[in-house]
Each structure stands twice: as C-alpha cells, then as structure tokens.
Nucleic acid binder design. Structure first.
Lengths: 333, 333
DNA sequence: TCGATTGCCACAAACGTTTGTGTAAAGTGA
DNA sequence: TCACTTTACACAAACGTTTGTGGCAATCGA
C-alpha cells in the first residue's frame, strides 16, 4: 500500500520509546495534548511524530478489535434521482463530521435487489443503516429487524419506525391552498407510486385541503405511476385523453411536473393560462423552467437522518421528525 | 452485531471438527465443492453448514491479514449531477460483480475538498481509486501519484493518465455536422468549465467540424461557466445581450441546454424555428423537453472505468478508452 | 510521618482471518 | 515390496489495533 499506510502504531511507539498502548490512547482520546493518559510532554511528542510521518490508523485492525466499523450504510431507490442524491449528500456530509463514512447502494425499489443490497452492507459490518426506499407498509423491513443493526428511515416514512421526512401532508396542503386561491375547479393529480408515504401524504394533504374549499378531486383525475419525467408524461397523456383538459395539475414530484409541462406544450396548451402546474421538491430544474413548486428540505432530511441514526445507535429512544416544506411560486401557477 | 455476524470461522471449524485453516481454504477458493484442499465430502459439509448458519466472513479480519480491502474509492464532482450519478451506478454495478464495494465522495470540483476526500478514502485503505473530477491539466493528480494506489480517470481525461471517457471530440463533431446541415450561420456555444476535457474536446470537435463547413464560431459566441441549468441560463442571457439572437446553440451539457431553452422561451423566441438547440448526454429530461442531444454512454463509462482499474490493479498496462457517442434528434433542432 | 491517592506508563491478551509449513495416511509405480 | 508422491488435513504465526490490568514513583491528606 502507500507509504503513509505502512507506518504502524507499533512503529510509532518504537520510534518514541513508548508502548503501543500509550500511543493508542493519546491518539484516540480527542482531548488532544491534554490527554489524561500521558504527560503533556509525551502527548506532544506523540502527536507531533504522528503528524510528521502522516500516520493513519489501520481501520481494519481497529474494527477487528472494537467490533465497530464506523461505516454506515445507506440504501436508496436510485442515486440518479436528484432528490435521493441530495439526501445522500446530506447524510454523507453529516457522517463525515461525525467520523463515519457512508456507503450507498441502489435498490431500484425492487424487493430482491433491496434484500441483496442490505445483506451486502450487513456483511460489511455497518454500524447503522439508513433506508430511503421503504414503502408505507414497511414490508421491506421485516428481514432487517431480525439482524440487530440500528436503522432509521429517510424521505419515506412508515408507521412505527423512526424516520425523518418532509412534512408531506403539509406540503400537499400548501399546494392545495394555493391552487384553490387561484380559483381552479378541475384539477389533476400525478400521485407517484401509491405505496410510498411521499405519495400518500402529499396526496392526502392536497385533496383534503382542496375539499375544505369545496373542490373535489375524483379518482379519475388521479394517476399513479412513477416519480420521473417519463412517468409524468405518460400519466398526463392518459388523463388528458380520458377526461379532457384541467384547470390545474399538481405533481408530487418536479420531474413528473416537467414531464407534464412537456406534453401540455406539445398539445398547444399554455401554462399557466390554460392549466396551472405545481410540482414538488424544488429541484434546480424547477427554477430553470419556472415551475411553481413545494420546496422540501432534502439536504436537511439527510443530515438529520444521520443524526437520528447516531442517537439510536447511542441507545437513546428517538422520535420521528417532519421537516416543514415551503411553497415557492414561479410562473407555472 | 447481528446474529449472522457472530458466527466465526473458528466456530464453524469447531462445529465441523475441522481446523479453521481448512474451512478458510474451501470457503475462499471459488472452485466450490471441487476444492483441492479438502475431500469432496468435507467440502460439501463445510459449504452446507456455512450456508445454513449464514456465515459471513468478517471483512476486517480478512483485510487486516491480507492487506486488501476490496474497497474501491470513487470521487466525483457532485453526485447530484445526473451524469456522474449514472457513471457511479455503472461503477458500483461492475464493482459488485467483481466482489468489490464502491465508496463515493463529492469533491465539488474544489481542490481542497478533493484533497480531503481522497485522503479520507486512502485512510480507509481502498485498493483502487476512480477519479471523475480531474481537470485536463491533471493538476489534482500529483498528490495521488505519490501514494501508490492504482487509479484511473472517468468522464474527464487528462493526457498521460489512463481514462475511460466519451469520445467527446466526436460528439462535438456530430453536433457540428448536424447543425451545419441545417444551414445555420450564427451559432452560440455554451462550453461549460473550460479546464475540463469534456468542455475542451466537445468544443474542439464542434467548432472544427463547423469550420470545415465554412462556419466560424468567434470567441464572443462562446461562454464558459458551469454544467448546470443555472449556468446555462446565465450564459445564454449574457450572449443574447451582447451579440443578439443566434441561429443555433450547442450546449456541452443537457442541463445547460435546458437552461438556455428556458431563457429563450422567456424572451419569446421559438425553438427550433428561431434558434435550434443541441445538448449533450441525453439525460431523461432531454427526452421530456424534446431536446436534440448527443447521447453519451454514461453507464458504460462507469462499468469500463471499473474494469480498467481492475486491470491496472492486476499490474497489466492499460490503455485509455473512448466510447462513441450518438446523435439523437428530437424537436429542438 | 505514613498510608492513600494520583500520574504516567508498560504488559499482554484478544479480535477473526489467511497462509506457510508440517504430517499422517492413502495411493502409485516398478 | 519399498520408495515415492499425492491427498487431506492440522498447527501456529501474523496482520495492527484496543483495552483490562498492573506497577512504580511522586504527590497528597491528615
């Protein structure tokens, strides 16, 4: 391996005329020079030499001894999805701050793939697990509960499990309230994957708030499918063909909204004059195309997810957190 | 840790009345039942019991002994970028097939951050490194060369280092040829970050091919900046304000192209009638908005990057690979 | 003044593998 | 039959940490 990594704790100790145990203790105890395990002078010498030769502990030896890997596993449906990529960045950032490293895997929202990826992470002896691909019914969780690694959910919640999510119900309400204020009557809803809390909660918040304003969204106006542009296009086309042109359309995901934007334009419909569109998440592209959308704190979801996991690993009992979204109005509605 | 992970090699051996060494050998040698280290009968018993109790080797003990981690590090500018996320998926997929696990880090195209992330990966004793954020001049590579971990470049090349990239020069030519065939005369170029081979090669291929058709792209028609939608908007605005409306615009990145699309629409310009637009990469959104673009084999770049690295780790001497792009014509040009 | 505490450090075992070497028994060829 | 190779295993050391325990000197409290 590299030169750096060839210098060992024992080597350091020998060089200093100390025992490896002493060197290990001062190097590990964050206290720095004021370690309680060696004289200030000795501590200084140790730190100095370690820094000079660029000593880096062998994590495998350490993990073998301590049975802790300082690795945390993350599984997401797909890293290509901007939302999950951003959440992962938040996780990774927070993990680094706490001395952990995050390892990520794609499950593609496919149970077998999920299972395989989780097992692989377990085999790597991760200290904790963050799941970003859990359906509302928690059906992918049973296998994980048997192993006793602590885990938390992010982005999608499931009753009974600790999670940090966007307050998607509120987000749906925000969108509903805004569109109701615009006087819409016939509205379409692109609901995403209906087994996921992101779909369920946003849909519920949206329709219920509209209902409070006397606006009813019948089932035929709601399309499920996926969260990406293609799914959005497809769903929009289907709705348009079956029930005509709406006043407004709410997509629970920006990409689906952008897909809708595309097919509406293709049919000569004008946004927002003919139909108003609201998306969800406020991805950068939303800004690019002037999409009115509900901003969800994706990065924060990741950060807090990691912190929640850390708490759980410490044995604290934790509570799920819901982070508030915010409506950002642009030109599409 | 979990129940599974509490069963050790020694435990297995004891249970079977064998020595750990024998068990280790049969378990490791892929030959399966026909191991040359034990009788077929013994091999079968070992495999069976291991499977039954769900034995998973402790990777830390193994890595400590072998000085190999079966970890490969990946650093990318930003995982939020669809292109890099896709390349990473390719890497991860291929890594898994070869028994490796990939760990990814964001450098944000920032030298200090890059340095820190690489060091962190090195400290984890990665067996190899894949860099997706190297500028054309290779300036971020000097520190890495001193350590002796094998590495390869992906997406962006740098002369003298092994890499797998899209044939970006060809990609530029494709775009140039197509637009030339459309009879354009005044063309804008959103060139991205001018220190990166993706910008340099695409730009060169594009302008040189246009030149062959007698079309000159003056420096004032070329804007550098970033690869995202915001940068695309900003650059387009700048060009529009300084030199008026062009016949066509080529962006070396789809997101920048989509940004351009937005500002053109905002100024009442029609695409493709007033200005034709070509992007690069063929991300899903390009399909959504009907963007004509150059499709780059992102996933393959990742896969082959990993394979190239593996070759290099085997001590073979390797050659850089350039994968061919392909023009996909939609409605924007 | 003496016993008790504290400060500073070393010893050695253990974590779970991998792998070089050793060694019985069984098989082989002449 | 005997010298031989091969088969089928076991022994034990090593990888680089961490951490419980122990020991000696200096300091402290009364």
């Amino acid at each position: 391996m590299s030169k750096r990594s060839s210098v060992t704790l024992k080597g350091l100790a020998q060089e200093l005329g100390l025992s490896p145990s002493t060197v290990s203790r001062v190097l590990n105890d964050a206290a720095g020079e004021e370690s309680r395990w060696a004289s200030p002078e000795t501590s200084r010498r140790i730190l100095a030499l370690a820094h000079e030769v660029g000593y880096a502990k062998n994590p495998y030896a350490a993990s073998l001894r301590t049975a802790r890997s300082r690795l945390i596993g993350v599984v997401v449906p797909r890293l290509q999805d901007y939302v999950l990529a951003t959440i992962y960045e938040g996780i990774d950032e927070a993990a680094a701050e706490h001395g952990y490293v995050a390892v990520v895997a794609n499950s593609l929202d496919n149970p077998e793939s999920h299972e395989a990826r989780v097992r692989k992470l377990m085999d790597r002896r991760i200290d904790g697990l963050i799941l970003g691909d859990t359906p509302f019914d928690g059906s992918t969780l049973t296998a994980i509960e048997r192993e006793d690694v602590p885990f938390v959910l992010v982005n999608r919640r499931s009753p009974g499990y600790p999670s940090v999510t966007c307050n998607d119900y509120l987000g749906g309400q925000l969108a509903g309230e805004y569109l109701a204020g615009l006087g819409v009557e016939k509205v379409f809803l692109l609901a995403g994957k209906n087994r996921m809390s992101t779909s369920i909660d946003r849909t519920a918040g949206f329709t219920e708030r509209l209902a409070e304003h006397g606006i009813h969204v019948p089932a035929e106006h709601i399309a499920t499918g996926g969260f990406d542009a293609e799914a959005g296009e497809e769903a929009t086309r289907r709705l348009l063909d079956s029930v005509g042109v709406p006043d407004a359309l709410f997509a629970v995901n920006d990409f689906a909204a952008i897909g809708a934007l595309g097919v509406l334009a293709g049919r000569g419909l004008s946004v927002p004059d003919d139909v108003k569109i609201v998306g969800y998440n406020d991805t950068p592209l939303a800004g690019g195309v002037g999409l009115t959308t509900v901003r969800s704190p994706m990065h924060q979801i990741g950060r807090q997810g990691l912190e929640l996991l850390l708490d759980r690993m410490d044995g604290k009992d934790v509570e799920s957190r819901q982070l508030d979204p915010e409506l950002v109005v642009r030109t599409s509605a």
